[in-house]
Every structure is written in C-alpha cells, then in structure tokens.
Amino acid sequence: MSGVNSLVNIAVFGIVGAIMMAALVGLLLVVSGSARGATPVVRGAFGVVSVLLLVALPTLAAVNSLSAGVGFWTAFATATCVAAVVYAMNVALLPVVARRRFAGQRSALASLRPSLPVLAVGLLVCVSLGLLGSGLAALLV
C-alpha cells in the first residue's frame, strides 16, 4: 500500500509544484514585460521563491511519506520524483521564456535547446534536492 501512497504524493506535490512554478514564471514574464521591467531586486526575489519552492515541495512530499510509515529510501525516491516533475515544468517553459527574452534574435532561439548533458545535470540536481528534502523530512518527523 505504500507504493500507492508514494505515487499519490508524487502526483499531488509534483502537479502542485509544476503549477506553482508555471505561475511563478508567468508572473515573472508579466513583470518583466511591463513598462519599467523587472528590477534586480524583483528578479532576485523570484529566484529565492523558486529555490524555496524547489526545496519545500520535495520536503513536504518526503514528510508525508515518512509519516505514512515508509522507509527513508522510499521518501527519498518520492522527493526526487517531485523535484523531477517541477524540473520538467521548467524545461517545458524554457521556449516560452526564450521567445520572450530573445524576441528579435533568431540565431539565439535556434541554439537554445536543452542538450543531454544539461538534462543529466538537471537529473543530478533533482537527486540532490530529493536527498536534501528527505534528509530534512527525516529531521522533522
């Protein structure tokens, strides 16, 4: 039964995280497209919120998993998958952000595609976030 619980945690926290990340990126695009643009303080605040989101959601998923009585490694896998779903949303939104940023430069748009090494590093970041989240969850539970 813990396998179903982990899948539910991944679905709920992953989808909520993906929606929140999409909303955050959309809000940043709206703010940066305004007449005065986004100041460095606003961009920094968006970066801090996105990092907090990338740490908090896997941690909450791992806390929920550990509270259900599963082991650390199941909580780690759940947290890693939640981080991967949020990361996938960021990769999916990359062309939208790039079109907005490089509106007149076709060569910059054509060269902006995530390569296999970039995706592999992203997977390592997701594993690191999963380890951080499950470690924090183990301390909290």
Rank of each mutant, 00 (worst) to 15 (best):
S2C: 05
N5R: 13
N5V: 14
N5F: 11
S6I: 10
S6N: 07
L7V: 07
V8W: 14
V12Y: 02
V12D: 00
G17T: 03
M20R: 05
L27N: 14
R36F: 04
A38R: 10
A45K: 03
V49L: 15
V49K: 07
L52A: 14
V55H: 01
V55G: 00
A56R: 12
P58E: 01
T59Y: 07
L60N: 04
L60D: 04
A62T: 11
V63F: 04
S65E: 13
S65G: 10
L66F: 00
G71P: 02
F72I: 03
T74A: 14
T74K: 08
T74S: 14
A75G: 12
F76D: 05
A77F: 12
C81H: 07
C81I: 06
C81R: 10
V85I: 15
Y87K: 07
M89L: 07
V91R: 10
R101W: 13
R101F: 15
F102M: 08
F102I: 02
G104W: 06
G104D: 13
R106P: 03
R106A: 15
S107N: 10
R113N: 06
P114A: 15
V118Y: 08
V118F: 13
A120D: 02
L123D: 01
L124E: 07
C126Y: 05
C126E: 09
G130T: 02
L131C: 00
L132C: 03
S134W: 00
S134D: 09
G135R: 01
A138C: 01
